[in-house]
Nucleic acid binder design. Structure first.
Lengths: 151, 151
DNA sequence: GTATCTGCAAAACATTTGCAATTCT
DNA sequence: AGAATTGCAAATGTTTTGCAGATAC
C-alpha cells in the first residue's frame, strides 16, 4: 500500500468507502482493501495477484472472498473485467473507456487512451502505439443482439 | 458438413489442403477436417463445440487432438483465437481484421466489419451496431512493448 | 524403420459452489 | 438473535502434459 497517488490526486480510504456505499456495497474491511488495492495499483491484476498482495495485510484472507468481492464489484459496475489473457481474468478499477496493450514478452498490460487510437485514422493499419509494437488487435463488443431484442 | 458456401464461393477440401501445406502443416485427415469445419462454420466455436461436431465424423477423435491441432493452427497463423468469453477460448478461421459482438443473452458471437465501426466517428460513443445493442466495449492490442524492444 | 500424429489418463489451473463458522449491528 | 460476510474444502470445467500406441512416408 505504498503508491497512493492516482492521476495527480490522493485517493483516501474515506472517498473509496463512499463510492462503495453509493453503489450499495457495504464497505467491509476486506472489500475496502480490495477496492483500495485496485484503485492504487493500476496493473490490471488477476484474482491471484490481488490475493497474493492483500494477504500480507489480512493473513486470514481467502481466495473465495477475492472472487466474491470481484464479482460484486463487476456486477455493481465499479470494476471491469478484462479477458485479454486466455487463462485468467484481469481486473481494472478504471471504468472509463480505454484500450489495453498486452506485451507477449513480459506479459505487462498497459493502458492505451482511445484518443491515441483515433489520431490514427485506421485502426486496421495501426502498427505501433506508445512505442509498443502491435502484432494482434481484437475488438470485442458485448450487449444484446438484434434477435434477442425482439424476443 | 452441410454449409459449404463461404462468401459466394465454394470451399473445396483440395484448396484447404493446399493452405495447410503452404503453411508447413502436414494435412492429416484430422487436421483437414478440423480446418474444414472452421472454414465452413463461421460460428467462432470453442474446442468443445468443434469436438462435439467432428466426433460424429471421426468416432475415435480425442479432445487432445482438437487442442493440439488448434494450437498448431494458431501458431502457424491460419486461425485466430478469441478471448471474448471468460471461461473458454473461441476460434476463428477468418484471420482478416474484424470486430466481434457477443450477445450476453444468447451467447452468439457475431462478426462486425471494421468499416462499420469507422463509419461512426467515435467508437466510444457507439451504442448500436448491426442492430445489436452495445453495453460493453473492449479493445485489446498485443505485441512487444517499448521496454522489451530495447532489451 | 523412424518420425510424426493421435489418444488415453492424469495433472494443472482458475473459478465456482455448498455449507459452516464468524462477524456485525 | 438475525442477516450478511467470510473461508474452508470439494467440485467444476477448460486446457495441458506425459507417455504409449498407431499411423504415415
Amino acid at each position: 500500500m505504498k503508491k497512493l497517488e492516482n492521476e495527480g490526486r490522493i485517493t483516501v480510504a474515506k472517498e473509496l468507502k463512499d463510492i462503495l456505499i453509493k453503489k450499495g456495497i457495504s464497505p467491509s474491511y476486506h472489500r475496502l482493501k480490495i477496492y483500495e488495492y485496485l484503485m492504487n495499483n493500476r496493473i490490471h491484476p488477476s484474482a491471484d495477484m490481488i490475493y497474493a498482495d492483500i494477504i500480507k495485510l489480512i493473513p486470514t484472507l481467502s481466495k473465495t472472498t477475492i472472487y466474491n468481492t470481484l464479482k460484486t464489484f463487476v456486477g455493481k459496475g465499479i470494476v471491469s473485467s478484462l479477458t485479454i489473457e486466455d487463462n485468467e481474468i484481469r481486473y481494472d478499477a478504471d471504468i472509463t473507456f480505454h484500450a489495453h496493450f498486452k506485451c507477449l514478452n513480459c506479459n505487462t498490460v498497459y493502458d492505451v487512451g482511445i484518443d491515441q487510437l483515433r489520431s490514427d485514422k485506421k485502426l486496421g493499419m495501426l502498427k505501433k502505439i506508445d512505442g509498443h509494437l502491435i502484432t494482434e488487435k481484437h475488438i470485442y463488443l458485448k450487449g444484446i443482439c438484434k434477435k434477442c431484442q425482439q424476443h
